[in-house]
């Protein structure tokens, strides 16, 4: 896509852990169009967060991008100096994390924290930034913004802190908002409030949103396009309607079947056997092969490429067509 806002291609990220190398991201490609919402879904260790953190230069510890490219509006993010990247992050790309308590400064008033981003990015003058902060607090649903401006993070509930984080992330009107498990730590009713807020903001400003989540319910109800990751690779990527109607990867189907919804108390469970592994060598076969009901000899021998099986529907499975007809 030529007009994509963010294009990530063949991204590889590794972590060094004493003698081992952990292959966390193994050739991930995706793009986000202007105004689009992308849901990246996967379990722990799938590389869903790491791939996005790699792009943003927010990898911690021994994490290192070894290969690939990530272009934001034509600028190669992976080659930028730290200062240049910091300039884009926070101004053009807003970020929200799972646990607002660890990303907020506990010793700083929340109003000042929201203002800080606007001032460092020269988005607004001090006076204008103050006024915008008050507006933002109102917009994210924090009552009495002028007095709450002076509160510290510990004086807020979890849901309210996440609202503050959102206000910080959107302060400079970014074109892209990245939310890493934004509602995982929240109760269901609070999750609904936060998602409703995100949706309202998105519709108003037409910004693109990437939500990283382990929850299919969140992703499918919020996003235009779903990308499923496993073992640092993209397993399937499709527009929502296609994804709901014609899932084509055995992992996607297995994961969806693992969700027990209300009203299903008499169903038979079919757990995906086994457990996810950290890769200590680059994958040479399909990483899901040991847990897959559709696996054949060929699946043990080659690494399936992400290929198109329909309009904008990509899947990395040798037997996707059979899987799809079987599931349908």
């Amino acid at each position: 896509m030529a007009d994509a806002l963010l294009t990530v291609e063949n991204l590889h990220t590794e972590f060094t852990r004493q003698e081992d190398v952990i292959y966390a991201v193994n050739g991930v490609s995706f793009s986000v169009a202007p105004g689009e919402t992308l849901g990246i879904v996967g379990e722990s260790g799938s590389g869903k967060s790491v791939s996005v953190l790699s792009v943003l230069g927010l990898l911690r510890g021994s994490g290192k991008v070894t290969q690939g490219s990530a272009k934001f509006e034509g600028t190669e993010l992976l080659k930028l100096k730290r200062r240049q990247l910091e300039d884009i992050r926070g101004r053009d790309i807003g970020v929200i994390f799972q646990d607002p308590m660890t990303s907020l400064n506990p010793t700083m008033r929340i109003g000042d924290q929201i203002m800080e981003g606007m001032l460092t990015h020269h988005y607004a003058s001090r006076k204008a930034a103050y006024n915008r902060t008050i507006d933002l607090l109102t917009e994210v649903g924090i009552p009495e913004p002028t007095s709450r401006f002076r509160n510290y993070p510990f004086e807020f509930s979890g849901g309210m802190r996440q609202r503050v984080m959102i206000a910080m992330a959107i302060a400079c009107e970014p074109q892209l908002l990245i939310a890493d498990e934004p509602t995982t730590a929240l109760d269901v009713t609070v999750q609904m409030q936060v998602l409703a807020l995100l949706q309202k903001l998105r519709q108003k400003s037409r910004m693109s949103v990437v939500i990283i989540t382990h929850d299919f319910g969140v992703a499918t109800n919020f996003c235009d396009r779903i990308m499923v990751m496993y073992a640092g690779k993209v397993m399937e990527s499709a527009p929502l309607e296609e994804f709901l109607k014609r899932p084509a990867h055995p992992y996607t189907i297995g994961l969806k079947a693992s969700i027990i919804e209300v009203g299903q108390s008499n169903r038979v469970l079919q757990p995906i056997p086994g457990t996810t592994q950290q890769l200590t060598e680059p994958p040479r076969a399909c990483p899901f092969v040991d847990r897959c009901a559709f696996a054949q000899d060929a699946c043990h021998e080659e690494l399936p490429e992400l290929r198109s099986i329909g309009s904008d529907h990509l899947v990395a499975c040798l037997r996707a067509e059979e899987v799809m007809s079987h599931a349908g």
């Binding site: 469970l269 757990p271 056997p273 086994g274 457990t275 592994q277 950290q278 200590t280 040991d290």
Partner: peptide
């Protein structure tokens, strides 16, 4: 229905 046996691996 019993859980399938765990694939033993480096993690185990």
């Amino acid at each position: 229905m019993a859980v399938a046996s765990m694939p033993t691996s480096s993690a185990t």
